[in-house]
Amino acid sequence: MESLLANFLAKYNYWAYIGLVMIGMYAMIAKRNLVKKIIGMNIVQTAVILFYVSIAAKKGKTIPIIAHGHEDTGHHAVQALDYISPLPHVLMLTAIVVSVATLGVALALAIKVYRQYGTLEEDEIAMRIEEQ
């Protein structure tokens, strides 16, 4: 029982990302307001970023920047185990900026919808479409 609990606590990064995915997806499905849906989408993106960055971690190791790398190259061998994995960081670095760009497009679409129907509530938009 205790080892089960220890196992559960040892993977807290996954529980955090699962929680964020659930919050974000709930907002995307259940909320009627388009801006709230967009915020939900952003929360899901944040969850994915957290997931990627957390699987890159190595306990007690440092960031993937070679110490004194520009001074004496070749004198000491660089051990891969001493640095955390750079690859997920690279992927998420671009993903963060792309998520801001997609957020901009989503907000632009929301403004466009508001201009057309005068509201951002989903049920009211459906009503206006039926009226036309």
């Binding site: 040892a10 890159a56 306990k59 891969a80 185990l81």
Partner: peptide
């Protein structure tokens, strides 16, 4: 699916 994932801070995780 989470029990199959590597533990927090595992240097042997597939990403590394």
């Amino acid at each position: 699916g989470t029990p199959d994932f590597p533990a927090w801070g595992d240097p042997e995780s597939p990403a590394s």
